[in-house]
């Protein structure tokens, strides 16, 4: 881990000194013929490789959608697996074009890191997992517990706040990667494993006996997860931002992977704007007119991606909840494409 961050830092120093702050990410990506996308080191449902090395997940779909919008080919991506503590340095140094790695949007990250969040792909919150045998029913019963956590996350800070705020003592053991953290929890070094609730469900699948572990009901924080891009390139910021909005808009309009070709012929003014048969909105972004149909053809709309990766159609089986569309009781909402 030390070596990785050292290399990344040297790359950062070199990158920052060699090239002027590039405001041309789109051109760089096109010239390279490939999008470089920072993902996790393996979090089922969000970004994890299968046994053939194909990356899948909600965060991965964002990158695939961007690649589809640029190249009309969702496979022109290089995935860069990053630990929580190395991710921002990799983005700053230009090693990756976009960070799509279940990263919580906070004020300090949005400002001092030299990067911007482009939107929220998943509204999450932090929770706790314990062994059923401990017979704990609430996070407030965790006084004096040992807690395993991945370092360099908002989780680590929320944990400190929560135990302090509730006058409880605890012992924290922080590991460099998620896998090490889960392994230490499973070996009995800790009583509690904490991360975002979606992560708890995903990591529980990795345990030997998932049924022996229970996720406690308390959600102790707001964790809006979303992609990040570097400061200083507004065009690229817009492309990544509107890729997500394109997926959400497609769901709002009922455009799916199956009916996209059919609906593209629609005469409705709204559909014509979205599909680019009227106006040149896609070109204003620096993309092509048919950017939305390219995205939907390759990864589907937001709802399809959600169901396939983390929703009831997946192993995780997480309900849509607040991640549903605003019109269906959730808070996912896209500004109009016009």
């Amino acid at each position: 881990m030390k070596r990785v961050s050292l290399v990344v830092t040297l790359a950062l120093a070199a990158g920052l000194s060699a090239q002027a702050a590039s405001a041309q990410t789109l051109k760089t990506v096109k010239d390279r013929g490939m999008l470089s996308c920072g993902v996790s080191q393996g979090l089922p449902g969000f970004s994890s490789p299968d046994d053939k090395g194909n990356w899948t997940g909600l965060d991965v779909d964002i990158c695939r959608a961007i690649a589809a919008a640029i190249f009309n080919d969702a496979s022109k991506i290089k995935f860069v697996p990053l630990s929580a503590k190395d991710r921002f340095t990799a983005l700053q140094s230009g090693e990756i074009d976009v960070l799509s790695r279940n990263t919580t949007w906070t004020l300090s990250r949005d400002t001092s890191l030299g990067a911007n969040f482009t939107g929220v792909t998943y509204y999450d919150g932090q929770g706790f997992m314990v062994k059923k045998a401990l017979k704990v029913n609430s996070a407030l019963e965790l006084n004096s517990a040992s807690v395993c956590v991945q370092q360099g996350t908002t989780t680590e800070q929320n944990l400190a706040d929560y135990f302090k705020g509730n006058n409880m003592k605890y012992e924290v053991i922080a590991f460099g990667t998620n896998d090490e953290t889960v392994k230490a929890y499973e070996s009995g070094r800790c009583d509690v494993f904490t991360t975002d609730v979606s992560g708890l469900y995903a990591d529980r699948l990795k345990l030997a006996n998932p049924a022996d572990h229970v996720v406690l009901p308390e959600v102790i924080s707001k964790e809006p997860l979303g992609p990040m891009v570097r400061h200083g390139d507004d065009q690229w910021f817009d492309i990544v931002k509107w890729t997500l909005y394109g997926m959400i808009t497609a769901e709002e309009l009922g455009i799916t992977q199956k009916n996209v070709d059919e609906l593209a012929k629609s005469d409705k003014p709204e559909m014509k704007r979205v599909f680019g048969t009227d106006g040149n909105l896609g070109e204003q972004l620096g993309l092509t007119k048919d950017w939305v149909s390219r995205i939907v053809k390759s990864v589907g709309n937001y709802g399809e991606s959600f169901e396939r990766n983390v929703g009831t159609g997946s192993k995780l089986g997480i309900a849509r909840g607040i991640n549903n569309l605003w019109s269906k009781g959730g808070i996912q909402y896209a500004p109009p494409i016009r």
């Binding site: 881990m1 030390k2 961050s5 990344v8 830092t9 950062l12 120093a13 929580a84 503590k85 190395d86 991710r87 921002f88 340095t89 700053q92 300090s108 990250r109 001092s112 890191l113 030299g114 370092q151 360099g152 996350t153 680590e156 800070q157 922080a174 460099g176």
Partner: peptide
């Protein structure tokens, strides 16, 4: 320091 602190502040150099 080079782990958690770096990640929280982003000041790698």
């Amino acid at each position: 320091f080079a782990g958690t602190t770096l990640s929280q502040t982003g000041q790698a150099i």
